[in-house]
Simulated assay, not measured.
Amino acid sequence: MNDRIRTDIAHNARVWNYWLGGKDNYPVDRAVGDTVTGFYPSIGEVARADRAFLGRAVTHLAAEAGVRQFLDIGTGLPTADNTHEVAQRIAPDARIVYVDNDPIVLTHARALLTGAPEGVTEYVDADAHDPERIVAAAAGALDLSRPVAVMMLGILNFVLDTDEARSIVRTLMAAVPSGSHLVVTHPTLEPELGGEGNKAAMAFWNENATPPITARSRQEFASFFEGLDLLEPGIVSCSRWRPSSGEAHVVAQFGAVGRKP
């Protein structure tokens, strides 16, 4: 086994996989996941809503916005309807670059994420804290003179300093042209989204799992989209971003898509 893989401490990608009903996790991940659920019973619903948001956002970008290139940062463990599967069902020639720096994620990604032969599905071992490296590595598979959808679902919450998180977003979006998009989800403590229960859950997580996590306010979340045109309906609970049917239940996870003018 890769000596970078720790099985003695819970890790976000594996706990998230557990909440989504996957099998790529260890007893320590399940134990921490169950305790977090005890603090915050809707966390599994948040995980599922985040995943469903990814599907709707990628579908819109590929089918309606004509985007053919996706840079998915913080891939996590493969589950159903990954970015390349959603995009390449619509556009088989879509090109997807996944970025993660967790060895277990990369091991599973290389084994499971095979894309359509007409398109490209690549993997980059890089840290979200190093956007210059991400851009340089992605340029091998993506044409950065053409629009790119930069996907950052549930990843900026692991960049604890908000100024640094904004800088990462700015660096990435500066590297892609007009017509590119930014897609972000992020946990919040805001009571309007039912986020109060997140506080105790996050405190427990930061003492018992890795990597540490932070929540952000609506204003902080909005700052990631400075200079971009927000697509309707703007900044909402990710479950309420263009739901496929009816009024979706609110979860404490912001979601938004912005377009670079």
Rank of each mutant, 00 (worst) to 15 (best):
E164P: 02
R51L: 03
P117T: 00
V32P: 09
V135A: 15
L54H: 04
I213A: 11
L193C: 12
R166Y: 03
V150D: 15
G21I: 14
F39Q: 14
P131I: 10
A62Y: 09
H11M: 04
V257G: 03
C238F: 00
G44T: 13
A136H: 02
R216M: 10
I134Y: 15
D130N: 15
P261K: 12
I134L: 15
L112V: 04
A10V: 01
T114V: 04
P233I: 06
A203W: 00
A109Q: 13
V86R: 12
A87D: 08
D100E: 02
G234K: 05
G33Q: 10
K199V: 07
G44R: 15
E247W: 04
E220M: 08
A91G: 11
S239G: 05
P117S: 03
I213T: 11
L144Q: 05
R6L: 02
L193E: 12
R110S: 12
T107Y: 06
R51D: 01
R4L: 15
G66L: 09
S244T: 14
A175W: 14
V32H: 10
V176W: 11
N206M: 00
G140M: 01
A31W: 06
A57G: 01
E226F: 00
S180P: 08
G115C: 13
R68A: 08
P261Q: 10
R240V: 01
F70A: 10
G66W: 14
G197W: 10
V251N: 05
D72K: 04
T188F: 11
A87K: 10
C238S: 02
A141D: 05
L230V: 02
E45N: 09
V236T: 12
A87I: 08
L144Y: 04
E45Q: 15
S244Y: 00
S180R: 13
D3T: 04
M202N: 11
S167P: 00
D143T: 03
F225R: 10
D102A: 00
V32Q: 12
V148C: 11
E85N: 12
S167M: 01
P187Q: 12
D3R: 04
M202V: 13
E232Y: 07
L160Y: 00
L189P: 04
A141R: 02
T162S: 13
V183M: 01
R14H: 10
F158M: 09
L20A: 05
